[in-house]
Write a protein that binds this DNA or RNA. Structure first.
Lengths: 206, 206
DNA sequence: GTCTATAAGGGGATAGAC
DNA sequence: GTCTATCCCCTTATAGAC
C-alpha cells in the first residue's frame, strides 16, 4: 500500500486494522466511529481514508482476510484424506480450538458483524464460511462412510459441532483454570463422542 | 402501563417492543434508530418516549424479560430432581430447542447485544444467564454423581453443550428439511452422547 | 502522510400544541 | 396519546493546506 520504505504508512495501516478489530470486538461495528478508531491509532479521522475507502470496506477487509487466513492456515496443516477419520477429526478440532483461542477478537467479529455487511460483501463472506464448514462436513461424511462415525444426521451434527467448537471463543479467558491445550483435548474427545466414534476416556476429573 | 381501557396505548406499547425486536435482530441495536422503530410502528419518533425512558432501557427490557420468560418457562415444565438424569437432560434439551426455535429473534438479540448494555444492565443480564446455565450444569453434575454420565470436565461440557444447543437459532429456518421436533430429537441424542451416557441409536440416516 | 476545516446529514431526546 | 418542531451533538466523508 505504501511505497516509500521509510514512511510510517505501512505501520499506520496495520495500526488502523488492529485498532478497528479491538474496538469493533468490544463495542460492535455500528457503535464504533471512525473518530474513535483514529484516536486509538493516534491520527486524525481524515487520515484513516488513506487506508480504507470507507467504513464498510474496513469491516469487509477484516472479515475477508480473517476467513482467508483461517482457510489457508487449515490447508497448511490439513492431513491427507487417506488418514483415518478419527485422526482427521482430532487434527481439525485441535486446529480450530487453538486458532479460535488465539484470535478471539477476529473470530468474535466475524460471527457478530455479518449483519453489518453490505449484501454483496455478505455473500462473499458466507461463501468462505461455507467452505470452512464443508471441511468438517467432509471429515464427518468420510467417517460415516467408513463406518467409524455413527450419526443420526450428518448435516445437523456438523452444525452442532461447529457451534460447540466456536463457542470456546465466548468463554475462554487467558489465565483461567485450563490452558489452550487442555481445552483442545477436552473438545477433541467431546467431538469424537458427538460423531459417534468409540472413544476411550483418558481421564475423568471433578 | 396505560390506564384508559379504550386507549391504543397498550397496543402501541406492544407494537414498539415487537418492532424493536425485529429491527434489532436484523440490523443490530446500534444500527437501528428510534426514528426507524417509530416508522415501523407507525408513529412519530417522539411518541416512543411514552413507552421507554430511553433507547438503552428499551434494549434492557427486551433482554431482561426474555431471560425471565426463559427461566420461568423452564420452571413450569422442569422435572423434579428425583427423576433420572437422562430423562432430565432430555426434558431440558427438548425445552431449550423448542424455545430457541420459536423465539429466534429474541434469542439472537440476547446473545448479540450484550455489548450494548450499560455496565449495570450487563451485570443483571449476565446473572440471569448464569442461572440458566446452572440449570444444565446441575443436571450434568447430578448425572456424573450417579455415574450415568461420564465427562472429562463438567464445566467445559456444560459450556460446550449450551453453545451447541443455542447454535440452532443461527441456522434453523421455517420450512426446511427438518421440523422442530425432528431437530429436538437429534439434539437430545447428541446431548446424551456428549454427556457420556449410553444412548441407543434410534435411526441412522444419510 | 497527515492535518485542519467543513459539508451534509442523522442521531437521541425534549417541549409544547392539540 | 400523539404530533410537530427543534436543540444539540456526533456521524461519515471530502478538500485543500502543509
Amino acid at each position: 500500500m505504501a511505497r516509500k520504505s521509510g514512511s510510517s504508512g505501512e505501520k499506520t495501516a496495520i495500526a488502523v486494522r488492529e485498532a478497528a478489530i479491538r474496538l469493533i470486538a468490544q463495542h460492535g461495528f455500528a457503535a464504533v466511529s471512525m473518530r474513535q478508531i483514529a484516536r486509538e491509532v493516534g491520527v486524525q479521522a481524515g487520515a484513516l481514508y488513506l487506508y480504507t475507502p470507507d467504513k464498510q470496506s474496513l469491516l469487509f477487509d477484516i472479515l475477508k482476510s480473517h476467513m482467508e487466513d483461517l482457510l489457508s492456515s487449515w490447508q497448511d496443516e490439513a492431513p491427507g484424506s487417506d488418514m483415518a477419520p478419527e485422526a482427521r477429526l482430532e487434527r481439525f478440532v485441535r486446529f480450530h480450538i487453538r486458532y479460535h483461542i488465539s484470535r478471539q477478537d477476529r473470530v468474535f467479529i466475524s460471527y457478530m458483524e455479518l449483519r453489518n455487511l453490505s449484501p454483496d460483501n455478505f455473500v462473499e463472506i458466507e461463501r468462505l464460511r461455507r467452505l470452512y464448514e464443508d471441511v468438517l462436513g467432509e471429515i464427518l461424511s468420510d467417517g460415516a462412510a467408513k463406518g467409524v462415525f455413527v450419526m443420526e444426521d450428518i448435516r445437523v451434527t456438523t452444525m452442532a459441532m461447529i457451534a460447540m467448537l466456536t463457542g470456546v471463543s465466548t468463554w475462554f479467558r487467558e489465565g483461567g483454570r485450563l490452558g489452550p491445550d487442555d481445552i483442545a483435548a477436552h473438545y477433541i474427545s467431546m467431538s469424537l463422542r458427538l460423531a459417534g466414534a468409540h472413544v476411550p476416556m483418558l481421564a475423568v476429573a471433578e
